[in-house]
Write a protein that binds this DNA or RNA. Structure first.
Length: 456
DNA sequence: GGCTCGGCTGAATACATCAG
DNA sequence: CTGATGTATTCAGCCGAGCC
């Protein structure tokens, strides 16, 4: 009975393992409290130390553990749980989201289904401990279960509590069919942790230590990533010409003209390209005085759009790639082909949907993102969606990367389709002449090929 | 076999402490 | 003062030894 499914760098058989139970478990459990991070609407631990109780590492949902890096109610709750036949460690917290109906209420937001333990020897300030480990499920505050209401009716001052079989059934019943948001929570923890200095990060690896789960089970280090390809810049329908591709593979990124009222003052004539001459040099005369719709812009960096692409952009997560391609045509040489080329990318920091924001938040964001063409427009920005890139991991390329090949349609006209080589490497295909629908590069192999193409 | 009692265990709770 | 934590204490329930 004891000693099953235990990871331990030391030898097994020590009497400290005696009594841990991982088999023949019963359908019951107990509560375990954690601090909710007030900076998040998701039920994640207080990574940022906003409760002044330390940068919380537990529950360590990345590997489905509690007490992995630090002790928390260790002798009173975790050790008895490890010894007991209880299957579930129910995680509950005080909701700190001021606009949620459960604000300042203690609610159960998920559980760990016990299947083993992890021993961690003491290190510095961190005493040695056993963690509970198992599959974890986390649910949103909307789906959370208040502990002081029927059917539970526990005291609102509860710290630890056993959960009998009836209550366990009731809790699992309430959660069944609801969406497990563990992955979103891991991404949120990752995002929040970036604000912490190295010594305060809630991941051992980021603090400079080894973690035996980094390459295996840790969801933080094994999050699926994807890329979205989006056509941008001037094209034949939007100006009548394509941007220039020079003989050495460099190019100009030429934004489309601004058609709305805007605070933008730059024109094609006043904007000097990377090649040293005004952008208007590459365009018909009639366009010289037109203002630019500089989107994407690589300074902040940011990319904005209106509702049409919203659903696609909202699929992007922190750490995903937003890859921009444009139509380019050889300029002053014949050593390359006219076609579609990757010209730059963002490593996504945030996707901000202005319709989710309060008017006050909108104002704050609009100031911070004032480099973006959509926020320079005079009209209201309530429906705008903005993707911000991580500075340093987002750039306009020096050399464009060809991704298309000409193909003949049934009616005899030529169009740009994904070249066979790119089809094999990135797993996308068909016409990419139009920006809609945007193509996604998903799957580990395709994504890694893309990273290599971008030298990432 | 059945009953008593004492010791052990673990859940609940009281206490001390600390920080906003 | 409030709310949270770690630790100490209490107390109820269980189990087994020992006795009739």
């Amino acid at each position: 009975m004891a000693g099953m499914a235990v990871y331990d760098p030391r030898k097994e058989g020590e009497d400290r393992f005696e009594g841990f139970t991982f088999s023949s478990l019963e359908e019951k459990g107990r509560l375990q409290y954690f601090f909710h991070c007030p900076a998040s609407k998701l039920p994640v631990r207080d990574v940022l130390n906003l409760h002044r109780q330390g940068n919380k590492t537990e529950p360590h949902i990345e590997i489905g553990a509690e007490n992995y890096q630090n002790r928390c109610y260790y002798p009173n709750n975790i050790l008895p749980h490890l010894k007991s036949a209880e299957r579930y460690l129910f995680l509950f917290t005080m909701c700190e989201d001021p606009i949620h109906r459960y604000y300042k209420r203690k609610v159960i937001v998920g559980y760990i289904e016990k299947s083993g333990s992890v021993y961690s020897p003491s290190a510095g300030e961190r005493p040695d401990r056993y963690a509970v480990k198992g599959d974890v499920r986390i649910y949103s505050f909307d789906d959370a279960i208040p502990i002081d209401e029927p059917p539970l009716n526990y005291s609102r001052y509860t710290r630890t509590h056993l959960v009998c079989e009836d209550d366990t059934r009731a809790i699992l019943g309430r959660f069944s069919g609801r969406k497990d948001i563990t992955e979103a929570c891991v991404r949120e923890i990752q995002r929040l942790d970036e604000q912490n200095p190295k010594a305060s990060k809630t991941c051992r690896v980021l603090r400079g230590q080894d973690c035996p789960f980094q390459r295996t089970e840790c969801r933080r280090w094994n999050l699926p990533r994807k890329a979205m390809l989006l056509r941008v810049g001037i094209d034949k329908g939007n100006g009548g010409v394509l941007a220039p591709l020079f003989e050495n593979g460099s190019f100009e990124y030429i934004p489309i003209p601004e058609t709305e009222e805007s605070a933008e003052e730059r024109t094609y004539e006043t904007t000097i390209g990377r090649n040293g001459v005004p952008l208007s040099n590459y365009l018909p005369k009639r366009m010289s005085q037109m203002k630019l719709h500089f989107d994407p812009e690589f300074e902040t960096p940011s990319y904005g759009d209106m509702p049409s692409k919203k659903a696609y952009l909202k699929k992007l997560n922190h750490g995903d790639l937003l890859v921009f391609y444009a139509g380019l045509t050889p300029y002053g040489h014949t050593g390359a082909q006219e076609g579609l080329y990757i010209i730059g990318y963002f490593t996504v920091d945030e996707v901000v949907d202005f319709s989710d924001l309060t008017p006050k938040e909108r104002k704050v964001r609009a100031v911070r993102l004032s480099n973006n063409a959509h926020l320079r427009r005079t009209e209201s920005n309530d429906e705008t969606i903005i993707v911000t890139g991580k500075p340093g991991l987002s750039r306009l390329l020096d050399r464009a990367i060809l991704i298309s090949a000409p193909r003949q349609a049934k009616n005899g006209r030529m169009y740009h389709a994904v070249s066979e080589e790119i089809e094999n490497r990135l797993g996308i295909s068909g016409s990419i002449q139009r920006c809609m629908p945007p193509r996604f590069v998903e799957g580990k192999e395709s994504f890694e090929n893309l990273l290599r193409m971008l030298n990432l």
